[in-house]
Amino acid sequence: MRDPRPVLARGARAETVVERSRFLCVLEPVRDAAELDAVVAAVRRAAPDARHRCTASVLGEDGEQRRSSDDGEPAGTAGAPMLAALEGAGVTGVVAVVARWFGGVLLGTGGLVRAYGGAVSAALARAEVVPRRWVDLVEVRAGLATAGRLEAELRRRHAPEDVRWAADGWRAVVPVPVGGRAALGAELAADGLSAHLADLGRAVRPAGPLSPGG
């Protein structure tokens, strides 16, 4: 199974100057179209005197949702090269907005393509990219008598999520490598720990070592 595309840990900015025209790229991680539109609106408010505020975005686990806008620049000279820079980095869940202040010198089609694509590339160079992977989520349940030791072992070897204690028992969700439920059960059994395991489905998590089998 192919891993999902990486995302940005946080936003980044970069400013470039080409033939006296100033280009400011704002790069932000976004989860959906609403967050994307909010970032674009914020840049428009922050740079009301810019002649153009062009955009490109990639959304979806596999980057299947793509949008771009030239915002008054000649067709294909701004949004498309910005989108190409994002695609070249292989990221998703991201929007790039480039504000341009005209410096009095016409850049021509090729110059605009290089300037807008270069502005996004400069911001990407400053961004922290987070690789991700698919995991299986396994629910682990146990009685209160063994829950303390079980939780301690899981925290030592894994990264349990949604840990809950209740009067009738203990439960947690453990992300494991795809197909790793059986290995998790064998690991707990080898430690003499009794627990009930149930599959909760597949999810995406930041890449990193996962045990067992990862």
Rank of each mutant, 00 (worst) to 15 (best):
A12N: 05
P209D: 13
V204Q: 05
V204R: 10
V43L: 05
W134P: 02
G88W: 04
F23E: 03
R5Q: 09
D3L: 12
P177R: 09
E28A: 13
G180D: 05
G76V: 06
L107F: 04
A96W: 01
A207W: 01
R5E: 00
V98F: 10
G11D: 01
A99K: 12
A186K: 11
A50T: 00
G169D: 01
E64N: 12
G169F: 01
R141Y: 03
E28R: 15
A172Y: 04
A115Q: 10
L184I: 05
A190R: 15
A147E: 11
G169L: 00
S69L: 05
P212E: 03
L144V: 09
R67N: 08
A47Q: 15
A115W: 07
P4C: 10
G104Y: 09
W101F: 14
E153K: 10
V163Y: 10
R205L: 14
G214Q: 08
A183G: 11
V130H: 12
G143Y: 02
V58W: 01
R31T: 11
V94M: 02
S121P: 01
L8W: 09
R51F: 00
G179W: 07
A75C: 07
M82G: 03
Q65V: 13
G148H: 12
V30C: 07
L197A: 06
T16Y: 07
A41V: 04
G148Q: 12
T146M: 06
A78I: 09
A33G: 14
R66L: 12
E153N: 04
V98Y: 08
A33L: 13
W170R: 08
R156S: 14
A75G: 15
E187A: 15
A172F: 06
G185I: 05
D191H: 12
